[in-house]
Amino acid sequence: MDSDYAGGSGEADREIIRLWRTWRTVFEMLQDRGYEVTEDEVQISLSEFRAKFQEPTSGLPRRDQMKISARPTEAMQAKYTALPSKSNPNPQPDCGTIYVEFCADSSGVGTKQVRTFNHTVDENNFHSGIFITQTPISPSAVRLLSGIPGRICEHFQEQDLLVNITRHELVPKHVLLSPEEKARLLERYRLKESQLPRIQVSDPVARYLGLRRGQVVKIIRKSETAGRYASYRWVI
C-alpha cells in the first residue's frame, strides 16, 4: 500500500512537471503570436503552478481548470488588418480573443470532446481556439475542429509543446509580415507572391505561430559571411 502510494505520487509528480512545461510553452506561444499576456504568467514557477492546478490530495493535475483566454495586442491587430481596398476601404483586423483549453480525458479523444470545445468557442464568441490533448485525436475530430466557419481552431498534443521549438538554436527566427510590409516586399523585388519560396501551414513553426494561408513570413538566419540573412516564405 505504502509503496503503491509513493509510486503513484512519483507518477503524478512527473505528470505535473510535464504539464507545467507545456503550460509555459503555451504562454510563450501566445506571447510570440502577439497576444496580451503578462510576464508573470509566462514565467510562472513550478510551485505557483502546483498551488494553482494540483489536486492537494492525489497530486494529480486539474486539467479541467486549465483554461486561458487572451486578447490580441494593438501590434498584432495591425499585423492582421488587410490593406484597405476599393471594395473594403475600412478593413477590420482578422484576429480576436483566443481561447485555450486542456482536455482532461487521458485517452480516446474523439468528436464528442471536440464538439463541446467547438460549442464553448462558439458560445463565448471567441475568434480562435486552441485545443490541447494528451493523445492524438481521431481524423474525424480533426476535420470537425477545423470545420467551424469563421473561426480558427487548432489542435496540439501536450508532448508537442513540452519544449518550445522556436527557442532551439538551430531554428531561425520567424517574423510574420503585415499586409503592408508584404506589399512593400513584393514591390521592392517586383514579385508576385506566388514567386516566393513557400512554407506549409503544417510546418511546426508555422503551427506554433498560427500562420494562415497567404501570409508571408520573414526568416532571419545567422550567416558566416553576411552576418544576417533574411529570406521570405509564402504560407500555403
Binding site: 479523444v109 474523439g110 481521431s138 474525424s140 475530430a141
Partner: peptide, 10 residues
C-alpha cells in the same frame, strides 16, 4: 474505419 474508431472512443 473512422466510424469504427469514433464508436470505440465512445
Amino acid at each position: 474505419d473512422n466510424l469504427i474508431l469514433e464508436r470505440n472512443i465512445e
